[in-house]
Design a protein around this nucleic acid. Structure first.
Length: 510
RNA sequence: GGUCCUUUCGUCUAGCGGUUAGGACGCAAGAUUUUCAUUCUUGUAACACCGGUUCGAUUCCGGUAGGGACUACCA
């Protein structure tokens, strides 16, 4: 088992935007595959036609691309175990369901939704601890076990709707292995006869999942903790099919929880607390509801990957927190995944993004800058954008901050921050600025360092203070008192524009 | 309600029988600074509880309590 090729799959349902839990499941599968020289497979699980959302599959693919999780096998990429979408594998599943029936591990059931509901209510009223359709109740229901062969055949032939249910064994104590959690125990008497094959001719998740994992030679199933209760059923399915020798190993990931309060992180929390829960912008085609993505909010993909990787996992024995994709791939082990759910912390994510912005080259940041400038109606060339990114990136949490904090380089201030005016604009400010204009006019080499030398010399030799000269000047140049080194601002603005802005400031600031 | 999983600073976590229980985010204070930031320093704050096992438990076992998931012809 341990020597077999590592093949893992990410198997989302195309029912909407890919939320953070899904993203992290995909990421851990990817990292595990890369670490073990295995294959990372994308399989689309669209067996529920009623929940299909147009665009969702494309969205999932685009999201994986943006994060940088390259897929080895999928319908798009190809592969020898395709098709990789369950609706296109529909013809495969029925025979497996029938095999189980023939071997006595499953049976046909004809109960109507109303009859099922009645049984549920009855058991609830009795406060019974058993499931509504399981070992304890199945002999009172309408199925091939109670009806007999002849009647069953008759019903089948007549074309009435039926499902195939798994015949959960009675009184078996199971102890199953999970890579992250160790041993999981279960008592089959308390489990139910899950539907494997639906009346619409499609398999349920349980059947399709086991059949496809088997057919696609999946070696490890890495999925969310919400599947843990299904593990006994899945194990029993492998056993009933006679596939135990090639059954994958299982690893159930802890859940991502709300930053505040209780429960699993949901889309609503993002809206409520003001952070994205989707990698990319997502608009629900039915409701038209729009959700912001990490990309559009201004996160760098590698920062996103880094912070997601550290949510519920860490390499152990290190204080390092910033990891390249390559480092993550070589360090990742399932054994270091935490057992308990982790609350999502948007603040720490901002910090991660800031770290990445700081360590990303100005040339790469310039591309984000140019894009934002363009949207604001300004054409900026790459050289200029790179220089400005270098000046402002210390202050940027998101890629958009780069442009937002540089806007005044392209647009003279039309108003001046009143709090700053109050604090820094003094009676002698106009006079000091007029004098600085004279100094600046006399400078031919209008570079930051040179100006700093000359202006400092002037300030020092006249017994003036830096603050009294430079703060009002900053106000005149940028409209507010924040931003990079003031002589860098002057250099980037250029002599003519700088002088004009200061002169305007003298006239307009009060 | 039932079943299963889980429990170290507010949050993310390190720790795998003997530690002054470490780091990061956040927060607070200070230093640097012409602004805002950055940076640096310091501080803040945790082993849920009760029993065992052991010379010794944060660490192993059991229980209690909290948290979470599941309990659909959804995945």
């Amino acid at each position: 088992m341990s020597n077999r090729e590592v093949r893992v799959r990410f198997a989302p349902s195309p029912t909407g935007g890919l939320h953070l839990g899904g993203v992290r499941t995909a990421l851990f599968n990817y990292l595990f595959a890369r670490k073990n020289n295995g294959k990372f497979i994308l399989r689309i699980e669209d067996t529920d036609q009623t929940r299909f959302v147009p665009g969702a599959e494309e969205y999932i693919i685009k999201s994986l691309e943006w994060i940088g999780l390259d897929v080895d096998e999928s319908d798009l990429k190809g592969g020898e175990y395709g098709p990789y979408k369950q609706s296109n594998r529909k013809h495969l599943y029925r025979q497996y369901a029938e095999q189980l029936v023939n071997d006595g591990f499953a049976y046909y059931a004809f109960d109507t939704p109303e009859e099922l509901e009645d049984m549920r209510k009855k058991l609830e009223a009795e406060k019974a601890s058993v499931q509504s359709y399981g070992p304890a109740t199945r002999m009172t229901m309408k199925n091939s076990l109670t009806l007999g062969n002849e009647k069953t055949q008759e019903l089948l032939n007549s074309g009435v709707q039926y499902v195939v249910r798994f015949k959960m064994p009675e009184n078996e104590k199971l102890v199953l292995k999970d890579i992250i959690r160790g041993e999981i125990s279960a008592d089959t008497s308390l489990l139910d006869d899950k539907v494997l094959f639906k009346s619409d001719g499609m398999p349920t998740y349980h059947l399709a999942n086991i059949v496809d994992d088997h057919l696609m030679k999946i070696s490890h199933v890495i999925r969310g903790e919400e599947w843990l209760p299904s593990l006994p059923l899945h194990y029993l399915l492998y056993r009933s099919f006679g596939w135990l020798d090639t059954m994958p190993e299982f690893a159930h990931l802890p859940l991502i929880l709300k930053p505040d309060g209780k429960g699993k992180l949901s889309k609503r929390d993002g809206d409520r607390l003001g952070f994205p829960v989707f990698p990319l912008d997502w608009t629900d085609p039915k409701t038209g509801e729009h959700s912001k993505g990490y990309k559009e909010t201004g996160y760098l993909p590698q920062a996103f990957m880094n912070m997601m990787a550290l949510l519920g996992w860490n390499p152990g024995n290190t204080t390092q927190e910033i990891f390249t994709k390559e480092e993550l791939c070589s360090l990742f082990t399932l054994e270091h995944v935490n057992k308990s759910g982790s609350k999502f912390d948007p603040e720490k994510n901002k910090w991660f993004n800031k770290q990445y912005i700081e360590q990303t080259s100005n040339e790469i940041l310039a591309e984000y800058f140019i894009e934002d400038a363009k949207n604001a109606g300004f054409e900026v060339n790459k050289e200029k954008a790179s220089v400005l990114c270098g000046l402002v990136k210390d202050r940027a949490h998101f890629t958009h901050d780069l442009w937002l904090q540089s806007e005044y380089f392209f647009k003279a201030p039309t108003e001046y921050n009143s709090a700053n005016v109050k604090k820094f604009w003094k009676e002698d400010s106009p006079e000091l600025l007029s004098k600085s204009v004279e100094i600046l006019k006399g400078i031919d080499d209008f570079t930051s360092k040179n100006m700093e030398n000359i202006v400092s010399e002037w300030i020092n030799s006249n017994g003036l203070s830096f603050g009294k000269v430079l703060n009002p000047m900053r106000l005149a140049l940028a409209g507010e008192c924040k931003g990079p080194h003031i002589f860098d601002i002057l250099e980037q603005l250029g002599k003519q524009e700088s002088i004009k802005r200061i002169e305007d400031g003298i006239k307009n600031i009060k």
